[in-house]
Design a protein around this nucleic acid. Structure first.
Length: 557
RNA sequence: GCGGGUGUAGCUCAGUGGUAGAGCGCCACGUUGCCAACGUGGCUGUCGAGGGUUCGAAUCCCUUCACCCGCUCCA
């Protein structure tokens, strides 16, 4: 393990400790021992996450001007909001593909302790002589063994990989590969009746695989108090489908014209097998998603536009561009109808150097989603998937979700660009980026380490703290007056008269408060207070009657 | 789900079978008065949870939960 990674691990531990100590994040149900994959936001964390959500909503929706063309945008466009329900008609998830995809079957190898996706495992029947030495004697028995030799190798390399595994299993050198008698072509493992005949990819003997077990990644619940099996419903695993199923409602009710976007912030739920890395992978999480609907011919331009705009959003709120990457998915990773998908990823401290974790995916989804809800679940070739009777496997709504452009006299199913961000991941990234330890002189000029959250002022949970320098000579009253004024003006502020002034500054540094205002001996003489900056520690004197105004202007964008 | 590690005060940790501790923090009072000050006093624990062994368990054993690391997974 590199030193870099060790430092980063300590750094992550320190961030987690700070989050708990100062009330940003707690483990859910902690007094009962906690639940894996669930987190609670404390008083400061709630403010921080709310600020992240608000910044997103303001920047994407409420301050959006559909009459003007934004910088680098192909043309003006409208943005509207939506709040759809968490539980939806079960058919939504069948047509979206989540129902089939989230029912993965997995097998475990009891020898190698590896777990494999059952539907990805392939193999060939083979037969060869195998020498076995019985225990406790030198007697060697030679017997002809038949087995199903498996591999997880995708694509064309599977055959070579199976051969290598077979040589290992039969104890043969590669020059004797002719001794293996192949009894079948490459087959999916689901084609064999008895898993005891299979040799797992990293096993040395047969029959180490467990029976396939289902991992349902969607949380299941029941509609109605007496609901039976037919009343099964699911907590949504993404917010996007709530937008697609309301596409027609929005078009019919809000006078929006294509191109336009529908934005939504809301909770989603995935029963992750391994929640890990603080709030990065949680089972309950919040998404901030836009589904942007446009003409198919313009979709590539819009994809470029959203990809770049969303990347810049993170840097505009203080994440250094060198800690972010815009990772374009390879062509092989893409569904073939998609022009592109890009992940905006952040160098989280819990990852190794050079590794990044996803904050947001920007995907070109073509007309896949709307058509699936019209016609039924589509396969990767955009054909409706059929069952054994030649009927749609999952029937769509049958409703027409196409759009009619009455100026061009053209009807089409819009293409979709989907910038889908994780609110909790974003919040965590802003916290990680802001966390810094620096050295500042104490009252004797000796350097002391300081923990500071250099949060962007828009995101800081507390915008300003107001202190009386000492607890007498009328200073607390003046400070309290400023505090009241701030609260009335809607500025999130704290009042603190406890302890030495230096300690109070450091307390605020640790929670990322950008500005501290101190009422001192001079205040009574000339009606000024000091304004101290979190990052530079510089102080300047501001007239007391201008202080609210001054803070508001410094918080402005 | 597997393997390894960890779990003691708000935080960081000491405590290997015999009365639960330290530092930091927090609170009060006094002094000082612009960057983690000093003095005095105070607060905080079902030792992660449940069970067992024992005269006696934070300590030994079993089960379980959570966190960290490595696998696995990640539409």
């Amino acid at each position: 393990m590199s030193n870099q990674k060790k430092n980063d691990e300590n750094r992550m531990e320190q961030i987690v400790a700070l989050c708990k100590r100062r009330g940003f994040l707690f483990q859910s149900s902690e007094i009962y021992g906690g639940v894996n994959g669930f987190w609670d936001y404390g008083p400061l964390g709630t403010e921080l996450k709310r600020n992240v959500r608000n910044a997103w909503w303001e920047d994407m929706v409420s301050t959006h001007d559909e009459l003007s063309c934004l910088e680098n945008a192909p043309k003006p466009f409208a943005m509207v909001g939506l709040e759809s329900s968490i539980i939806m008609h079960p058919q939504v998830w069948k047509c979206s593909g989540h129902y089939d995809l989230f029912h993965d079957f997995m097998v475990d190898c009891t020898e190698s302790k590896k777990r494999y996706r059952f539907d990805h495992m392939r193999g060939r029947w083979a037969e060869a002589e195998r020498k076995t030495k019985s225990e406790g004697s030198d007697e060697v028995t030679v017997e002809t063994v038949k087995a199903f030799i498996t591999s997880m190798e995708p694509g064309e390399e599977v055959e070579e990989s199976i051969t290598a595994n077979a040589l290992k299993f039969f104890g043969l050198k590669s020059k004797y590969r002719d001794k293996i008698n192949w009894l079948s072509e490459v087959l999916p493992i689901s084609s064999i009746d008895n898993l005891q005949e299979a040799v797992a990819p990293e096993a040395t003997r047969k029959g180490t695989l467990t029976e396939p077990r289902e991992f349902n990644l969607m949380f299941k619940t029941t509609l109605g108090a007496l609901g039976g099996a037919d009343d099964a419903a699911f907590l949504r695993p993404e917010t996007a489908q709530g937008i697609f199923v309301n596409f027609k409602n929005v078009v019919d009710s809000s006078r929006v014209k294509i191109p336009f976007g529908i934005a939504q912030i809301g909770k989603s739920f995935r029963n992750e097998i391994t929640p890990r890395n603080f709030t990065f992978r949680s089972r309950e999480f919040e998404q901030m998603e836009i589904e942007f609907f446009c003409h198919p011919d313009e979709s590539s331009q819009w994809y470029e536009y959203w990809r770049n705009r969303r990347f810049n959003w993170y840097t505009s709120l203080g994440i250094a561009a060198e800690h972010l990457i815009l990772r374009e998915h390879h062509k092989e990773e893409l569904a073939h109808y998609s022009v592109g998908t890009a992940d905006i990823e952040y160098a989280f401290p819990f990852l190794s150097e050079g590794e990044y974790g996803e904050l947001e995916g920007v995907a070109h989804r073509g007309d896949f989603d709307l058509r699936s809800h019209m016609e039924g679940k589509l396969d990767s070739d955009l054909n409706v998937e059929l069952n054994e009777h030649g009927q749609p496997k999952h029937r769509g709504s049958g409703k027409d979700l196409s759009y009619f452009d009455d100026q061009a006299r053209e009807r089409f199913v819009p293409h979709v660009i989907e910038p889908s961000a994780g609110a909790d991941r974003g919040t965590l990234a802003f916290l990680c980026e802001a966390y810094q330890q620096d050295e500042q002189p104490d009252d004797k000029g000796k350097m002391q380490s300081r923990t500071v959250l250099k949060l962007h002022p828009r995101l800081a949970p507390v915008k300003a703290a107001i202190f009386p320098l000492i607890k007498k000579e009328g200073m607390p009253e003046v400070a309290a007056k400023i505090y009241h004024e701030f609260r009335e003006a809607g500025i999130s502020a704290q009042y603190d008269q406890q302890g030495a002034i230096g300690r109070r500054y450091r307390r605020q540094d640790e929670i990322g408060t950008p500005f501290c205002i101190t009422v001192d001996g001079q205040t009574a003489d000339d009606q000024t207070v000091t304004l101290r900056d979190r990052d530079t520690l510089k102080q300047e004197r501001i007239p007391i009657n201008k202080v609210t105004e001054e803070i508001q202007s410094r918080l402005g964008r």
